[in-house]
């Protein structure tokens, strides 16, 4: 599905504060599974996630999506791939304040030029799926943390992406909401979506929902553990 080969990433290259965040990562993300990148702060998991999600380019190495090398594509094509293939859930949810839940959800559909009525219908289906239909027109700043995250999930799913990427998704949730979130992830993976998370929350890492855990330390992959399902 997603393969990384010898990925290296440097910040402030050539300057006195040059810093190598990733030092040669090789990994393969399986389709329709929940994969977790874990590691202490500064281990490079968020940097790795941005490269996996086409939000950033590696300094060195190759990224292949469904066998196709996408690491050298110009920004425009990369954006197109990102929009069609990936859905993002951010740690701070990153919803746009002042807009209603449904207005936030349809935002990723704007650049594609899909008619508004279709976008709204799709968003309403997603809201109903996540039991949030009653909060359709509420401004996002009025929603609880759990509700905001569900809006963020709906937004991530609007373009029906193959891969869902989430950065520390439970960092701002209590245990009950975290468990609910993991249950949603399980449904998505069972429906055939690939889910990639970063987390250092034991509730997530040790969850039975997770299929594979990649451990990172100092920019290197130190361990890969398959946890739940039998692998082909």
């Amino acid at each position: 599905m997603l393969e990384l080969a010898n990925i290296r990433k440097v910040f402030n290259q050539g300057q006195h504060n040059e810093y190598w965040a990733l030092k040669g990562i090789d990994l393969d993300i399986p389709p329709a599974r929940v994969s977790v990148l874990k590691g202490p702060s500064g281990s490079g998991k968020t940097t790795l996630l941005t490269i996996l999600g086409c939000l950033a380019r590696p300094t060195e190495g190759r990224v292949r999506l469904n066998g196709e090398d996408i690491s050298g594509l110009p920004e425009r094509f990369l954006t197109e791939i990102r929009r069609r293939t990936f859905g993002f859930i951010f740690q701070q949810f990153n919803l746009i304040r002042g807009l209603s839940a449904i207005e936030n959800i349809i935002l990723p559909g704007y650049p594609g030029g899909t008619p508004r009525a279709q976008l709204l219908a799709r968003a309403e289906t997603l809201l109903a799926d996540l039991q949030l239909a009653h909060r359709r027109d509420a401004k996002v700043e009025w929603l609880s943390g759990g509700e905001q995250q569900r809006v963020a999930i709906c937004r991530a799913l609007l373009n029906d992406p193959q891969i869902l990427v989430a950065d520390e998704p439970t960092a701002n949730l209590d245990s009950k909401l975290s468990t609910e979130f993991l249950a949603i992830l399980r449904r998505l993976a069972e429906a055939g979506r690939t889910v990639i998370l970063t987390s250092h929350d034991p509730l997530v890492v040790e969850s039975e929902v997770v299929d594979r855990v990649y451990s990172l330390r100092d920019g290197q992959l130190v361990e890969v553990v398959d946890t739940r399902r039998a692998w082909p």
Partner: peptide, 19 residues
């Protein structure tokens, strides 16, 4: 800062620079 943050969000969710 709010506008810059919004632009970052829009780009992350698939808006192009041109959009």
């Amino acid at each position: 800062a709010e506008e810059k943050r919004e632009i970052g969000i829009l780009k992350a969710i698939g808006w192009e620079t041109g959009d």
